[in-house]
């Protein structure tokens, strides 16, 4: 007795829409030395999408070629204070082949006393 199998083929499609971030990078972009996009290309991309909002800082590091930072962040914290913190954190996982984006939240606490 010959047993017959029935074949069927179908596709399930699911679509997830979300808003495209402009620019797609956030506050900081860490560019690996052999990343597929270099710092100049990243800066131009950012400049086209959000003109004059980012600074490119080339650094001397084994794995990282440059860090691109939103200018408003640097208005709050100077680069010489911020970069060592970023480098210290990415050192744990950084790869020369990758580009990492990061979100930075800065809260400045101010406390003043006045004489009554």
């Amino acid at each position: 007795m010959v047993r017959k199998y029935e074949k069927s083929k179908n596709a399930d499609i699911s679509i997830r829409f979300s808003e495209f971030e402009i620019p797609p990078m956030q506050d900081v972009l860490v560019v690996g030395k052999n990343a597929p996009i270099g710092p100049e290309a990243a800066r131009r991309m950012a400049d086209i999408l959000s003109p004059d909002q980012y600074d490119i800082i080339k650094i001397n590091h084994d794995s990282v070629e440059a860090i691109i930072v939103r200018k408003t962040i640097l208005n709050m914290i100077p680069s010489e204070k911020l970069l060592p913190i970023i480098i210290d954190e990415v050192n744990e996982f950084v790869s020369i082949n990758s580009v990492y984006k990061a979100n930075i939240q800065i809260v400045i606490n101010v406390k003043r006393s006045i004489e009554l």
Partner: peptide
């Protein structure tokens, strides 16, 4: 040789 082939010339 030292650059990722996807890069632009400005980055290599």
């Amino acid at each position: 040789r030292r650059s990722h082939p996807n890069r632009i010339v400005a980055d290599a």
